[in-house]
C-alpha cells in the first residue's frame, strides 16, 4: 500500500500564521520601512536609501558591542552546554531524590530576569552582599563589579550560568530518560566503557534536545539585556554593554529610529544566519 501525502493539514497552521503575521511579520516590515527613511513625523519623512545601513555598519561602537556579544554568547554556550549535560548525567533517575532535584533545578528558571539581576547585584556587593563580602574580606580577593570590567564580565556570565544551566540540564535529562534500557544492556554485554556509552548511546540520543538547548541559549544570550542593565547599566565604561542595550540606547534614548531600524535588521540577519548554521550542522551531520 502506498502512503498518500495529504497536504491539506497545512491549513491548520493558518491561525498561527495569522498570529505571527500580526506579532512579527508586519512589525518587521515596518522596521524595514523605517530603516530606509529619515522620519520626523508622519508628514515629514525622507527616503535616504542605504545611508543608515552604511552608518551602522561603519560605527566602531557597534563593532565593539558585536564583538563583545559574540564572545559572551560563545562563553555561555561553552559553559552551559557541557555543564548541563554533566548535571543531567549525574542526576538521580528515580525515587524521591529525582523529584527533589527536578524541583530545585526548576527554581532559577522561574525567576524573572530583572529579579535575577537585582539578586546578584545585592549578592555581589562588597559591603552588604554575601558573595562580595566572602570574596573581599574572607578570601582576600579584590572583587568589585561596579569598578572592575573583568569582575563585571564574570558576574554577568555567572548570572546567566546560574539562571539557565538548569534549562539545558532538564532538556538533557528528558532526552536521557527517553533512551530504552536495552541500549545499556547491549553496551554492558559488549563491555563498553562509560565514555563509549556516553559517546555512542547517550550523546546521539540527546541530539535533538541538545539542538533545542543550543538554539535557545544562543538566541537568549545573544539578546541579553536585563541582567547587565540591572547589574551595572552596561558598565564599567562600556564593558558589559551588549548589542540589545546599544540598540535600545539608540532607538529610545537618542530616538534615532532610522539607524536603530537598520541596526536591528543587521542584528536579525546575524541571529538568522547563526541559528540556521547550528540547525543545519546538527540535522545534516547524521545524513552524510
Amino acid at each position: 500500500m502506498t502512503k498518500v501525502q495529504n497536504n491539506k493539514a497545512w491549513w491548520l497552521v493558518l491561525p498561527v500564521f495569522l498570529l505571527v503575521a500580526f506579532s512579527a511579520i508586519i512589525p518587521m516590515m515596518t522596521v524595514v520601512n523605517y530603516s530606509v527613511q529619515d522620519i520626523f513625523d508622519q508628514s515629514s519623512r525622507y527616503f535616504v536609501g542605504a545611508d543608515w545601513f552604511r552608518q551602522v555598519l561603519q560605527d566602531p561602537r557597534l563593532h565593539d558591542s558585536l564583538l563583545r556579544q559574540f564572545i559572551y554568547s560563545a562563553c555561555v554556550l561553552l559553559i552551559e552546554i557541557p555543564l548541563g549535560i554533566g548535571i543531567a548525567l549525574t542526576m538521580p533517575t528515580k525515587g524521591r531524590w529525582s523529584s527533589l532535584c527536578l524541583i530545585v533545578m526548576t527554581i532559577p528558571l522561574l525567576i524573572p530576569f530583572n529579579v535575577v539581576g537585582t539578586i546578584w547585584q545585592i549578592f555581589g556587593r562588597g559591603d552588604i552582599g554575601l558573595l562580595g563580602w566572602i570574596l573581599n574580606d574572607v578570601l582576600g580577593i579584590s572583587y568589585n563589579y561596579a569598578a572592575n570590567a573583568s569582575d563585571a564580565w564574570v558576574t554577568v556570565l555567572v548570572i546567566d550560568v546560574w539562571h539557565w544551566t538548569s534549562l539545558v540540564a532538564l532538556l538533557c535529562y528528558s532526552g536521557l530518560r527517553a533512551i530504552p534500557d536495552v541500549y545499556y544492556q547491549a553496551a554492558r554485554i559488549d563491555r563498553a566503557s562509560n565514555w563509549a556509552v556516553f559517546r555512542h548511546i547517550q550523546l546521539p540520543k540527546m541530539k535533538s534536545v541538545l539542538l533545542i538547548a543550543v538554539m535557545l541559549r544562543f538566541m537568549d544570550s545573544f539578546m541579553i539585556y536585563t541582567e547587565p542593565f540591572v547589574l551595572t547599566g552596561g558598565g564599567p565604561g562600556n564593558s558589559t554593554t551588549f548589542l540589545s542595550q546599544t540598540l535600545t540606547t539608540m532607538a529610545l534614548g537618542q530616538f534615532d529610529l532610522g539607524p536603530a531600524a537598520a541596526f536591528s535588521l543587521v542584528y536579525f540577519l546575524i541571529i538568522l544566519l547563526v541559528s540556521w548554521v547550528f540547525y543545519t550542522a546538527m540535522t545534516h551531520s547524521e545524513k552524510n
Binding site: 524595514v32 520601512n33 523605517y34 530606509v36 527613511q37 527616503f47
Partner: peptide
C-alpha cells in the same frame, strides 16, 4: 497602513 510608513522600494521588495 499609514503608520507603516511604506516607501516604493520597500513595497516592491516585499511584493
Amino acid at each position: 497602513m499609514e503608520w507603516m510608513s511604506w516607501t516604493l522600494p520597500t513595497a516592491i521588495f516585499f511584493a
